[in-house]
């Protein structure tokens, strides 16, 4: 019978026993609830080995792709190394290889990780200032096309890490990063699905990554990107995005400004309201929401009521999220 490796121990699985039964029988600490594969309290991840498909029932596609499974309905055919969500991330050093201001407040930082990091465009990494202070930044680069990891660091008033990045960090410096994490990335398999992407501020970083990833993987359904800011100064990558709209007929980009006196080349109003007006029926669409937490929350509800399935709404609210290490 296969074994289960968990938290430094090896447990042998009895015939017909679930991973959850096996672990709890030996006194290992695993949260659980319904024990029927429904409540998802016993969500775990296989770091080595593939969990059976039946044990991933009802999980978001992004979680399935990362080998998450429900321990209570998991009867594996092979040995698995498993962990609880959130415990799987270790730190690795990375050298700064480039810094470029994209607008007055957003710095693109290019990083070369000393150990190869497997990430998907749109996920986030944690960047450490010293030992214990970390901030999460979404990845705008594409592992298949860009040699380095790109993050967009917006200078936050009184922000410890962002001001340090802007003012003190220089190419050649080495810092610690951790990750990747997060579910905000393109999933191949539904090339005709409509994709709606709404972001504010540096919330454009993951969306830029997702758009380029989708296009590189041959997505043929409509891709609608809406980027919002108060003033034109908050927009960035506009030339590159307009270039992409010329190269791909299924991609549209709308820059939205919520301030007053908006010139004709921009859409005027709140970005999620403009987006939902333009794409009022989201049945069957996949929706990515990144940036200001209030925008993300309001847009999540609007998108759901407009017909998008909960499973197809990916939210990345830019709060001070830090992965517990």
């Amino acid at each position: 019978m296969p074994n289960i490796r968990y938290d430094g121990q090896i447990y042998s699985l009895r015939d017909g026993q679930s991973v959850l039964e096996c672990l709890t029988e030996h006194g290992a600490s695993v949260p659980f609830g319904c024990r029927a594969g429904i409540c998802q309290a016993c969500l775990m991840r296989a770091e080595v080995g593939r969990p059976p498909e039946a044990s991933q029932k009802g999980l978001k596609p992004t979680l399935k792709a990362k080998n998450y499974f429900l321990a209570c309905i998991c009867n594996p055919e092979e040995t698995l190394s498993v962990s609880l969500p959130g415990n799987e991330l270790s730190r690795t050093p990375a050298t700064i290889v480039g810094m470029e201001l994209l607008n007055a407040e957003i710095m693109q930082v290019s990083l070369k990780a000393h150990e190869q990091i497997e990430y998907r465009a749109g996920q986030f990494i944690n960047l450490y200032q010293g030992e214990n202070l970390a901030r999460s930044y979404s990845v705008a680069s594409l592992p298949t096309e860009d040699p380095h990891i790109h993050i967009h660091v917006r200078r936050v008033p009184q922000g410890k890490v962002s001001n340090w990045v802007h003012d003190a960090l220089r190419p050649g410096d080495t810092i610690d990063i951790q990750g990747p994490g997060g579910d905000c990335y393109y999933l191949p398999g539904s090339p005709e699905q409509g994709l709606l992407l709404i972001g504010t501020g540096s919330g454009l970083a993951p969306l830029y990554g997702v758009v380029r990833d989708a296009l590189a993987q041959g997505h043929i359904g409509p891709i609608r990107l809406f980027h919002g800011s108060r003033t034109p100064n908050g927009l960035y990558l506009t030339d590159k995005l307009r270039e992409l709209t010329r190269a791909y007929s299924n991609f549209e980009y709308t820059a939205c400004l919520s301030g007053s006196h908006v010139s004709k080349e921009f859409a005027s109003g709140r970005v999620h309201q403009i987006a939902l007006n333009e794409v009022p029926n989201l049945t069957g669409w996949r929706v990515f929401l990144c940036g200001h937490p209030e925008m993300v929350k309001a847009a999540q509800k609007k998108a759901f009521l407009a017909g998008a399935s909960m499973k197809d709404i990916v939210c990345d609210a830019f709060t001070s999220r830090v992965i517990p290490s």
């Binding site: 609830g33 319904c34 024990r35 029927a36 429904i38 409540c39």
Partner: peptide, 13 residues
């Protein structure tokens, strides 16, 4: 989902 599972006569705790 948990509520509907219960109302539908499914497994619940």
């Amino acid at each position: 989902k948990a509520f509907l599972t219960m109302a539908f006569g499914g497994p619940h705790h």
